[in-house]
């Protein structure tokens, strides 16, 4: 096989993506989990730099790393396991969980809308930004429904996931939020799967709450955002 064919095969891009991610994990470990060394943030920046330097366009890259992207579905389903292991605590705290997650999502959406309207941003961009605390696959669907751009909504969702995963635990510690219930819910509501992945490293119970918060945010926002959009957008 000529070497050039490697450029069009998934092997190269899958290997590159996983390799960059493993290197990013190593940097993160050595820096003592510094917020700016968030593995997704580092990987995304490095990969953009590499692709830009090699003049590979994004569609070509994405088509070749479909396998990684596909695993988001099964990973979401897998969140049922930590949730089941901690279901007794979730059930006992049902009211604080539902109240906290819905108020938190609403606060995020309203803040975003306020920033956008103050800056005079157009409706399509505002709509794509308003879904940013929802897990990427669901955010794309809702954004389309309320007049946003699905692929842009996915990028904002991942950027928000990165931001929350990087600075969330630090900010929560600063304001003395220490229980796994409060930390887990805050991370899952803000940064969906990435927040869940991040807080799972802290402890499994917080991860279970984060996974539940992510699902509840997706469900709640899927119903509430289209109604809100009809009023304000």
């Amino acid at each position: 096989m000529p070497l050039g064919e490697l450029m069009t095969a998934p092997l190269l891009y899958l290997g590159l993506t996983c390799g960059v991610y493993v290197a990013a994990l190593e940097v993160n470990r050595r820096s003592g989990s510094h917020p700016l060394s968030n593995p997704v943030l580092l990987s995304v920046c490095s990969l953009i730099a590499i692709l830009w330097w090699a003049r590979v366009d994004y569609q070509h890259y994405f088509a070749n790393v479909q396998l990684i992207h596909f695993l988001l579905g099964p990973a979401t389903v897998a969140l049922a396991v930590p949730l089941f292991r901690h279901h007794q605590r979730v059930r006992r705290a049902a009211l604080p969980i539902v109240g906290g997650v819905l108020c938190g999502s609403a606060a995020g959406v309203l803040t975003t809308l306020a920033v956008c309207s103050a800056a005079g941003i157009d409706t399509a961009l505002t709509a794509s930004l308003s879904t940013k605390s929802i897990t990427a696959p669901v955010a794309m669907g809702i954004a389309e429904q309320i007049g946003g751009v699905p692929s842009l909504a996915a990028v904002f969702a991942v950027l928000t996931g990165m931001t929350g995963a990087a600075f969330g635990p630090w900010l929560l510690s600063r304001v003395k939020v220490q229980t796994s219930l409060e930390r887990g819910l805050a991370m899952g509501t803000t940064s969906h799967g990435q927040g869940t992945a991040r807080i799972l490293q802290e402890n499994e119970e917080a991860g279970a709450f984060a996974g539940f918060a992510m699902g509840l945010t997706a469900l709640g926002m899927a119903i509430l955002l289209p109604l809100l959009a009809r009023l304000v957008l």
């Binding site: 993506t17 991610y21 990987s43 995304v44 994004y58 479909q66 897998a78 396991v81 692929s151 992945a197």
Partner: peptide, 23 residues
């Protein structure tokens, strides 16, 4: 299997994140 996938869940967001380059 679930513990294995969830421990590395952050990797799964990388492909969409790189999409920022199109904008």
């Amino acid at each position: 299997v679930c513990d294995g996938i969830l421990a590395n869940m952050a990797l799964l967001f990388v492909p969409v994140g790189v999409g920022a380059m199109s904008y």
